[in-house]
Design a protein around this nucleic acid. Structure first.
Lengths: 161, 161
DNA sequence: AATATATGAGACCTTATTGATCCTATTTAC
DNA sequence: GTAAATAGGATCAATAAGGTCTCATATATT
């Protein structure tokens, strides 16, 4: 019952672009490096974000991505659901007509309420709020941090299983 | 971001046993047939439920399962987390130490709150509440319904994909 | 005690999803 | 025109989910 990697990457990408500011063109490579996203994977993710109207993609030399909205007008829910489709904690909720038991049994209702609650929580969060917290990305480019020998949150990267 | 089939089956199983009443022994076969759960799969699910102390398993001839608690004392959260482990909507929340970005960035906090909210919702629902609603299972055994030619919610079973 | 009945425990298989990569085409700055 | 950059789709590997099977074990019944 977890968010997919693609959705997590999408959030990071939009955070990065929000930091850059609306309509500031940023290359895919820069985003991939700074937000620690596989570059090719980011290409695919960006296509979904573009289709949803969240970002704009500029092709060609000196191309890249840019945020097409004001960060204050982009919610966490929009980004998440762009990547994974409408949230629906269980199958029953996703297709009530296909529910083996009943389209409106007591369990169904619990999941429906929980889903609505979760979606509301995510809808209440916009990207201007998210970038207000400085801890999500290093303020300096990664390379710079390393030459300065500073401790960066990204250094925990190799601790994974 | 969906509940697994195993967890859905577990919920149905516990609902069925709750209907039977605490400490009423019911054969695996009966539960499997009535709640529409693959019998062998139910065996595996029951082992998890038993390890968690939710049900008791009786081996041997005339064996089966029985609910070891009062339905009022079993929450939906318990059953769900027995099957899928502690809920944690995203990786970041599951292992903050392994988070690439930071153990307490703004996104992390949103997911943490959403998770707590979801767990609270599921914790508030007990199985005596769930069985109060008659629509979750047919009141009659499936076979009986068919011979009587009545419409049963289970008849929608073949409408899937 | 023997037998039939029922579940235990885990190995195993199949399929779907996820995560990621690669390659050719297309677009654009210079 | 050339180089730089993304588009779009094919492909592949890893993981998880869903389900099945088999042999072992336990118990009621006779």
């Amino acid at each position: 019952m977890r968010l997919t990697r693609a959705a997590e990457y999408a959030i990071r990408c939009v955070i990065y672009l929000s930091r850059q500011g609306q309509s500031v063109l940023t290359s895919r490579q820069e985003i991939a490096e700074q937000a620690d996203i596989p570059a090719h994977f980011l290409a695919k993710i960006a296509q979904d974000l573009a289709k949803a109207g969240l970002i704009e993609i500029r092709q060609g030399a000196r191309g890249g991505f840019l945020l097409s909205k004001n960060p204050a007008d982009v919610t966490l829910l929009e980004v998440v659901e762009t990547m994974i489709g409408e949230i629906s904690l269980n199958d029953c909720v996703a297709r009530p007509s296909g529910c083996k038991i009943s389209p409106c049994c007591s369990v169904h209702r619990v999941w429906l309420d929980a889903r609505d609650q979760l979606r509301d929580s995510l809808r209440r969060v916009s990207f201007d709020q998210l970038i207000a917290d400085a801890s999500c990305f290093p303020s300096y480019p990664k390379a710079l941090l390393e030459t300065e020998g500073l401790e960066t949150p990204l250094s925990a990267r190799n601790d994974l299983q």
